Simulated scan of single mutants.
Amino acid sequence: MKTTVKYVSALVATALVAGGGAAAFAPVTAYTWWTELLVRAAGFASKTLELPDGQLSYRQAGRGPAVLLIHGFGANGVVSWRAQMTRLAKTHRVIVPDLLWFGESQSQRAPTLSAQTDAMESLIDHLDIGSVALVGVSYGGFVAMELAHRLAQRVSSMVIINSPGTVYRQSDLDSLLARASVSSAEALFIPEQPTDIARLLRMTLAEQPPIPIPTSVLEEMRNQYYVGREDALRLLMRDLIDGREYYQARMSGASWPRTELIWGDHDQIFPLPIGLRLGEAIGAPVRVVPGAGHNLPVEKPKETTALLSSILKPLTNGLHSR
C-alpha cells in the first residue's frame, strides 16, 4: 500500500495527547479530509470520465505542459501525489487519476494491466492531450511504461519511481517474498487484517513511525483502501505476476521517450540494484534519494517534488499540450 503513515502517526499522537481514543479520532479519515482541502485549494476538483464498462475518477489543474501522475498499488491519486500535484500545477497541466479498482474508479472489465492502460489512454484522448509526460510510482511505473510503449508519438518524457518495469525477474520476486516472510505477492500487498497492514508499512518505509500505530488505525487504513475490493486487487496482482513475461516481451526493443528513474536507497520492495539494472537496460539515468524507502512521494515529499520539478522543467521550453 502506498501509505500515509507518516501523517497518520502525527494525527494519532495528537489524538492521544488530547486524551481521545484513536478509533474515535479516525486519523485516516481526518488525513483524507485534510488532503482533499489542500488539493481543492490548488484547483483540483474531482471529475469522472464515464467508460464503456466503468468510470475513471481524476483531478486536473494548472496550465502548461501536460503531466500524468500515476499512483501505485494502493490508496488513490490524491493521497499518493498530494505534495507533487499541488507544486507542479504552478508550471504544468497536471492530471491525477485514480487507477481502476482504486479510489473512486471502478470497472466491470477483468482486472489487468492492459485494462489500466486502456483507461489511461481514454483519459488522455478525452482531455485532448497532444503530448504528455508520464510519472509512475511502483505499480504505476508498469502502467506508465505500457502506456509509453503504446503512445510513443504522444509521450514526451517519462519518470519512473521505484518500479522495475521490464527487468523484474522471478528471482527478484522470490527474494521479496522471503524478505517479507509471505507466500505470495497477494499476501503482502492485499492485507486481510491489521497485522498485514503493519507488515506492509515496515516493508515500504525506510523511516518507521515514532510510535506504534494502534490496531484501530491499521484497521481504518485497511477499511479505507482495501475492504470491498480485495477480489479485484488479487486478480490485478496475479495478472501482473503471471503476465510478466508477456508484458516484457511486448515491450522488448521498445524505443522509450526521454526517461529518468528516481529510487530510494532503502527500498525493500524493489531494492536499488533493480533500479540500476533498469536504468542500464533502457539507457536512463538513476537519481538516488538517500534514506528513502519504497513510497518516495509520501515518505520524502520535498525531495521527490524537487526532483520532478527539475526533471520536468525542460518541458516548459518544449512541447505543450493542446
Rank of each mutant, 00 (worst) to 15 (best):
E36G: 14
W33I: 10
V39G: 03
P27Q: 10
A30D: 08
A30C: 07
A26E: 15
P27F: 10
A41D: 15
V39C: 05
A45E: 13
K47Q: 10
S46P: 01
A23G: 14
A30V: 13
A23W: 07
T32S: 06
A30P: 04
T29E: 11
A41Y: 08
T32W: 00
F25K: 01
S46C: 03
L49Q: 09
V28N: 05
A45F: 04
L37R: 06
A45H: 08
K47P: 00
L51T: 13
K47V: 01
A24F: 11
A24Q: 15
W34F: 09
V28T: 12
L49F: 12
T32V: 09
L38F: 01
S46H: 01
S46T: 10
V39E: 03
W34P: 03
P27T: 14
W33C: 08
P27G: 12
T32M: 00
T29L: 07
L51K: 03
W34I: 13
A22L: 07
A26F: 06
E50V: 15
T29C: 04
Y31P: 00
T32A: 10
F25N: 13
L49N: 09
L38V: 15
L37W: 02
K47L: 02
W33T: 14
L37C: 06
L49H: 08
L37E: 08
P27A: 12
L49P: 13
R40T: 06
A30N: 06
V39L: 03
L38H: 03
P27V: 14
A41R: 11
A24M: 12
S46A: 12
A45G: 15
V39R: 02
L49I: 15
A23L: 14
F44W: 01
T32D: 09
L51S: 09
E36K: 03
T32P: 00
F25R: 04
R40A: 05
A41C: 09
F25Q: 10
F44E: 05
A45L: 11
A23F: 09
A41L: 15
L38M: 11
S46D: 08
A26Q: 15
T48P: 00
Y31T: 07
E50A: 15
P27N: 11
A24N: 14
W34R: 05
E50W: 03
V28R: 01
P27L: 12
A42W: 02
V39N: 02
A24G: 13
L51Y: 03
A30W: 04
L37Y: 02
A22W: 01
T32E: 06
E36L: 07
L37K: 02
F44G: 05
T29Y: 01
A22I: 10
A42H: 04
A42Q: 05
A41W: 07
L38S: 05
P27E: 10
A23C: 14
L38I: 14
E50Y: 02
G43R: 03
A45M: 06
W33N: 11
A42C: 08
A42K: 02
V28G: 04
T29F: 01
A45W: 02
A23I: 15
Y31H: 07
V28H: 02
A26V: 13
R40H: 03
P27Y: 07
T48L: 01
P27H: 09
A23K: 14
A30M: 10
V39Y: 01
F44T: 07
T29H: 03
W34E: 13
L51Q: 09
T48I: 08
W34L: 14
